[in-house]
């Protein structure tokens, strides 16, 4: 357990995304800088203000959206190409899908890029607040006020509406595609089992849930938003219904701000509001401290392919790589 690299940033730099692009450690800041570490630190500016970032499905590219209206794709060497540009708009959301598809959203409009072309434009009645591809097929989930819309990209716009009153601020699928889960303004998650649209309410959080992560086979869903990571069991056929979640890494008053499950085993990295990072086994709650504290809350974490290295970033210009092997 040793921190093998620290990135050197201005203390106001907000790390929006930390992880590995084709196994090269990368950090993207809200200012639009991309920090790449391979031996030494290199900084590339890709946006005038970065708003969102997502790893491509094959993990070879980082997809980004910015205040400059650009949608970019960055490779492991740090070179970026502009996939789309909407001057004057903020690209609020970005999602990566199968077959290198990319979806991005601004306000009430989402666009889908397939084979380097805009293949679909989806307009909602309310602002799009969350965007995610299903694991199979070109199907997009869009979170908005009062529910989640599921749109097929290639079949003439057929849509399924999953209704649940309230503001949905994010959305994602389970790895097997059986469940859709949204994060909500009112400190809760809401889920639907897709085969019968059965509701799943996951509530009781003291704060908003901003970070979620599935364990490798989708057995567990780890979440932030409480003074511990709340981890919901999804192994049964009814998902978490009727089962109590686990509370891992409980730290008194410290809030969990970020979670990232290990790619190989049922272990979760938990980041806290004071910059601490713990490594916790989901089965028995056994904890190992990876980082004791820092200047600001942990905002993002990501694992390399083998699961030996964890990259992390904070709100206050901190970031680094931890060797857990």
């Amino acid at each position: 357990m040793v921190t093998i690299a620290n990135i050197d940033l201005d203390e106001h730099a907000f790390v929006e995304w930390a992880g590995f692009v084709d196994d090269v450690p990368m950090f993207a800041t809200a200012d639009g800088d991309l920090i790449r570490i391979e031996g030494e630190q290199t900084v590339f500016n890709i946006h005038d203000g970065l708003l969102c970032a997502a790893l491509s499905e094959d993990r070879r590219y980082l997809l980004t959206g910015g205040e400059d209206g650009k949608v970019c794709r960055v490779d492991a060497a740090g070179s970026s190409s502009v996939l789309a540009e909407q001057p004057g708009d903020w690209i609020d959301l970005i999602a990566a899908g199968p077959r290198e598809a990319v979806a991005f959203a601004c306000g009430r409009e989402a666009r889908v890029i397939v084979d380097s072309e805009i293949a679909a434009k989806i307009t909602l009645e309310r602002t799009i607040e969350g965007l995610a591809f299903a694991p199979k097929g070109l199907r997009l989930a869009l979170a908005r006020y009062d529910g989640v819309e599921l749109h097929w990209v290639n079949s003439g716009g057929s849509m399924q509406f999953l209704e649940w009153k309230g503001a949905h601020t994010g959305v994602f699928f389970s790895p097997d595609g059986k469940y859709v889960v949204s994060t909500m303004q009112e400190n809760a998650l809401h889920g639907w089992r897709l085969k019968d649209a059965r509701h799943m309410r996951m509530q009781g959080y003291p704060s908003k849930v901003k970070s979620t992560s599935w364990s490798p086979k989708g057995k567990w869903l780890a979440t932030s938003g409480a003074p511990a990571s709340i981890v919901w069991p999804f192994s049964g056929k009814d998902g978490p219904m009727g089962k109590a979640p686990k509370e891992l890494g409980s730290m008194g008053k410290l809030q969990v701000t970020c979670v990232s499950c290990h790619p190989g085993v049922d272990v979760v990295a938990i980041g806290y509001s004071n910059g601490m990072i713990l490594f916790v086994k989901i089965d028995d709650g056994q904890e190992v401290a990876l980082r004791s504290e820092g200047r600001g809350p942990i905002t993002s974490m990501g694992w390399n392919k083998s699961g030996h290295l964890l990259a992390f970033g904070s709100e206050q210009g901190e970031g680094g790589i931890i060797d857990v092997s």
Binding site: F14, A30, D92, T127, E129, A167, Q185, E315
Partner: peptide, 16 residues
Amino acid sequence: RGDLIRVVQKLMRRQG
């Protein structure tokens, strides 16, 4: 106002 929640949060990430 949901739009203000989103915009203020985004703005606050770039201090100074």
